[in-house]
Design a protein around this nucleic acid. Structure first.
Lengths: 232, 232
DNA sequence: ACGAAGTCTTGATAATTATCAAGGAATGGG
DNA sequence: CCCATTCCTTGATAATTATCAAGACTTCGT
């Protein structure tokens, strides 16, 4: 890996203020690999050998316990995952698998920790990154503890809608079963939740959702920036 | 506040490797206050003016949305809370109130951020602290997404039991309604969950719980270190 | 010590969510 | 392009969880 190969990686909040030489060292230790869809990249409980950066494609973070499985998050380019485990030199709490053919940059954990020791700016960037990740999970936790399934869906639709320009139409970014699991419900329940939202102007056609009237949907959803906004 | 007033604060992971002079500066800017029970210390949505450290007593972190409320966590001495919001200079995602008469140390946010800028060791300690906090919430999120109410209670009891020496008896550390909310259920449902666990050797008398036979309880609970262990 | 307020439990019922089963729609590999 | 597979939806039903109500038990302040 050469430093100039992925300017988008360099411009991530995590790396942008790092010294050139330390970034170079990190990149030289890194591997760029392409994986097919549905490949398990990491398995919860394994030691954190690498920090992962999604360059192309898409990765699903999920967890299992008992016989159950739940999607914990999705990572899109350019996004990192499993930073906390790497820094703590601990085991992964979540598994990860590709959900498309994906190009992934792997940085050995020890190199990340070495850079963390050596590069002060990197250490500071990590703080802000981790603080954001922490607040992200807190919001998801509030979402699931304070809302019913229909409310979670309504708010998620409003979020996707805003993300995609807010012109009355949105495309679901993942399979419905994945969205169901993300939102903490079964696929059947998601399907029924969409039906419940029909009187609120939600029209589903495959992955395309049309919102014909935001007012009543928002009245139902009661969106809350302290749960739904990405940077609040 | 003098530096020597609270050696336990100094010995927190967060502060122990900080330089003496920076720690002193931080402590001189800090306020030590005693609050009565049930006082709201912070309100979600407000700007993060202080980092809080519980010296004595107990603090409940909770969140509201719609008309609902849920306990997000409990902080016991010597514990900090609301670090991420302070570092990001963002609004609080959670409210906090004392659940006993409590002695709290308040450090103004700007002083914390100043120390974060000036003191490298402090910045590095923050990384490890935030990484732990992050992993803590991920575990709670897994707990609620992957387990039923009875399973969550069973695992919580096993955790308290282990924490308290594992001699067959444990004391519930909080009111039952608080534990119910922490575990994401109503008080009525907690009461019934205790009844469900009776055949598994769980005997409740007020705040004291006796576990007469761990085997069947563990079989039901299926404890998972990647959810239940504090430092995994 | 006493009354008031809050907590906990139980019962009855309702709402929410999950499970099982089956048919139809969409998708991808050959 | 077609078949096979997976995904999605719907129906029927069950399990889980919440709500409402009432009574017993605690706790706390006066």
């Amino acid at each position: 890996m050469r430093t100039t190969d992925f300017p988008q990686v360099r411009s991530l909040r995590l790396f942008e203020s790092m010294s050139e030489s330390n970034f170079e060292t990190l990149m030289q230790a890194a591997y760029l690999q392409t994986f097919p869809s549905q490949l398990e990249l990491i398995h919860e409980g394994d030691p954190a050998d690498f920090l992962y950066i999604v360059i192309e494609g898409c990765v699903e973070l999920y967890a299992r316990s008992n016989g159950r499985e739940s999607t914990m998050g999705m990572v899109r380019p350019i996004g990192t995952f499993i930073l906390a485990a790497v820094l703590k030199d601990a085991v992964y709490l979540m598994s990860a698998r590709t959900c498309q053919k994906s190009k992934i940059l792997l940085i050995p954990s020890e190199n990340v920790r070495e850079a963390f020791e050596k590069d002060e700016a990197f250490a500071r960037s990590i703080v802000l990154e981790l603080a954001s990740c922490y607040r992200g999970v807190v919001k998801e936790h509030k979402d699931i503890k304070l809302r019913t399934a229909v409310e979670r869906l309504a708010n998620r639709l409003l979020r996707y809608h805003a993300d995609q320009g807010g012109n009355g139409s949105l495309e679901l970014p993942y399979d419905k079963r994945t969205i169901a699991s993300l939102l903490g419900m079964t696929p059947e329940n998601l399907s029924r939740a969409f039906n419940t939202l029909k009187p609120y102007g939600v029209e589903v056609d495959g992955a395309v959702v049309k919102l014909s009237d935001l007012k009543p949907l928002e009245t139902l959803a009661k969106p809350n920036p302290l749960i739904d906004e990405r940077d609040a």
